[in-house]
C-alpha cells in the first residue's frame, strides 16, 4: 500500500492529552473528536488539515493515556499515517486496532519539515521525502498485525475469526 501526502510536523513526546484533551472525552464519535484534534498544541491543525495528510513527529508519539480517542481523532481528521522514530505502546496498539497506519522510522523527524511531500510504502517499509530526496527504511508490520490492518481493524478481524 502506497500513500502520498503532505506532512504536518511536531516534536517529540506528543501526548494523548494534546492529541485529544480529556475535556472532550465524554464524546466518542470520530467526527466530533476530529474537531478538537491537536488543538492544545496547534490551533491551525483542525482548520488546515486535508484528507491524505501525514503527521511526522519526534520520539514517543502518543505517550500518556490509553484513550483510543487519540488515534480515532487523528484518523477522522483525514490523516493517512503517522510517522515517527518511536510510538508509545498503547497508542501503537490502538492505532493498529482502529486501522490507522503508524510507521516507525528512525531519523525521519530530522529530515522532514512542515509541508514536505512524502511517499510512504507500507508493504515495503519505506518513506521518501520528495523535497530532500532522502529515502528512509521504516518498520514493517509482523503478519499478525498486517492481518488486523488489512481486515480494517480488530473488530472486523475478530468477526471473521468468530465466523471462521
Amino acid at each position: 500500500m502506497k500513500l502520498v501526502g503532505r506532512a504536518w510536523k511536531y516534536g517529540p513526546n506528543v501526548d494523548t492529552d494534546v492529541i485529544i484533551p480529556a475535556r472532550y472525552l465524554t464524546e466518542f464519535r470520530p467526527a466530533e473528536l476530529a474537531k478538537h484534534c491537536m488543538e492544545d498544541l496547534d490551533t491551525s491543525f483542525t482548520r488546515e488539515v486535508r484528507v491524505g495528510d501525514l503527521i511526522v513527529a519526534g520520539r514517543s508519539f502518543g505517550i500518556g493515556s490509553s484513550r483510543e480517542h487519540a488515534p480515532v481523532a487523528i484518523k477522522a481528521s483525514g490523516i493517512a499515517a503517522v510517522i515517527a522514530p518511536s510510538f508509545a505502546r498503547i497508542f501503537h496498539r490502538n492505532a493498529i486496532n482502529v486501522g490507522l497506519p503508524v510507521v516507525e522510522c528512525e531519523g525521519i523527524d530530522e529530515d522532514v519539515e512542515k509541508g514536505d511531500e512524502l511517499e510512504v510504502d507500507l508493504s515495503e517499509g519505506t518513506v521518501l521525502n520528495r523535497r530532500t530526496g532522502k529515502l528512509f527504511r521504516a518498520s514493517r508490520y509482523p503478519d499478525f498485525m498486517l492481518g488486523i490492518i488489512n481486515a480494517g481493524g480488530l473488530v472486523n478481524y475478530t468477526r471473521k475469526r468468530l465466523r471462521g
Binding site: 466518542f28 490509553s66 484513550r67 483510543e68 488515534p71 498503547i90 496498539r93 490502538n94 486496532n97 482502529v98 481493524g153 480488530l154 473488530v155 475478530t158 468468530l162
Partner: peptide, 14 residues
C-alpha cells in the same frame, strides 16, 4: 496492562 476500547470490546466477546 492498559489497552484501548476496541481491545476491550473484543475481549468481552472472546
Amino acid at each position: 496492562c492498559g489497552v484501548g476500547h476496541t481491545d476491550m470490546g473484543v475481549s468481552w466477546a472472546t
